[in-house]
């Protein structure tokens, strides 16, 4: 029987009526156990009335839609995500290195990107690092702080933001990096990349000290 269904509420109400009627009917009976039977009748009547009212309120407010919910059973497991080791984790040197991912040619860059790792990248194997994506422009200084993975691109006239949308997935495959909250710097192409990327992936010219922290894999629940 459903916890919020009318049948259960009606049953509880009917029970209360029966108990009330029986308590009144047998109020003057019971002989030497009369005090006991009266007390039991009153207590049962009170309990059945409270249960009836509670069921009615629960039906209206839907606090506990099922017996399962009443028991506190959510029927769902919280899952600990895993931090996947990057394909380049073992080979990547400390400091900077030239990155040549499979999709490099499609990006039409002047030269392969340069990746700079945080000093503690190889020591903290259980975390993903925030990312700063820099489009190298003449005279522009890097704003990296050394706590993030920095990817420096040298775009050409044929480099497009749309083609670069594959970069986050390529980087996440090769290194332990966060997939949200990137900072992207470097003029119109950077702005176009931020606009084209899925919401939350990147923000334009986000100061490096406002990037998210390097974190262990989160606990997650199923998405809708």
């Amino acid at each position: 029987m459903s916890l919020t269904g009318r049948p259960l509420i009606l049953l509880a109400a009917f029970t209360a009526v029966v108990i009330g009627a029986a308590t009144v009917r047998f109020w003057s009976r019971g002989g030497r156990f009369r005090a006991l039977s009266r007390t039991a009748g009153v207590l049962l009547l009170e309990a059945s009335l409270v249960i009836t009212a509670g069921l009615a309120v629960n039906r209206h407010e839907e606090f506990y839609p099922s017996w399962q919910a009443l028991r506190g059973d959510t029927g769902t497991e919280t899952v600990t995500d895993r931090v996947h080791a990057g394909l380049l984790d073992v080979h990547a040197r400390d400091g900077s290195f030239t990155w040549r991912p499979p999709g490099l040619r499609a990006w039409n860059l002047a030269r392969p990107p340069t990746v700079t790792l945080p000093a503690d990248y190889h020591d903290r194997t259980d975390v993903t690092f925030p990312v700063m994506l820099e489009f190298a422009t003449q005279g522009a200084a890097s704003h990296r702080t050394g706590e993030e993975v920095t990817v420096t691109l040298s775009p050409t006239a044929t480099t497009s933001a749309t083609a670069l949308l594959s970069l986050p997935a390529e980087l996440a495959r090769d290194l332990r990096v966060s997939t949200v909250g990137w900072s992207v710097e470097g003029g119109p192409l950077a702005a176009a990349f931020v606009a084209a990327a899925p919401p939350g992936t990147a923000a334009l010219d986000r100061p490096a000290n406002t990037l998210p922290p390097a974190l262990a894999a989160p606990l997650t629940l199923p998405a809708s």
Binding site: E61, E62, F63, Y64, P65, S66, Q68, A69, G72, D73, T74, G75, T76, T220, L221, P222, A223, S224
Partner: peptide, 9 residues
Amino acid sequence: AVVAHGGHS
């Protein structure tokens, strides 16, 4: 994020 049961509790 969705849990299967539990209502508003």
